[in-house]
Amino acid sequence: MKVFEIKEILDAEIICGEEFLDREVFAACGSDMMSDVLAYVKEQAVLLSGLVNPQVVRTAEMMDMQCIVFVRGKQPDQGIIDLARDRDIVLLSTKQTMFASCGMLYEKGLRGGAMK
């Protein structure tokens, strides 16, 4: 699934990284617990999170994640946006809840990826 499809499915706002919307993601992970993301995500994935702090971007960086979706309309501050821009990571924000966001993406064919 391409990042722009995620944006459309979740009716999400692009916060930064509009130049990377044609990137492909192969899996998704929804979590507010970054250690779980570090433990279980394997494929090039999109991260959905209700947590808004710089460590969400850093976790995505370490995991080669292309895109982060902040759920429940959460908005990152400028420091987080600057970090994501510097690391070429797309930031999206959707008004949907975590549960609904994951369900909508799953319904359109995105999967969680293999557990290690």
């Binding site: 507010d32 617990m33 250690s35 779980d36 570090l38 433990a39 999170s49 947590l51 460590q55």
Partner: peptide, 15 residues
Amino acid sequence: SLGFGAGMGLPNIKK
């Protein structure tokens, strides 16, 4: 509340 501290750090490192 920052996304860590769930007792996964050292097990993750070992893994």
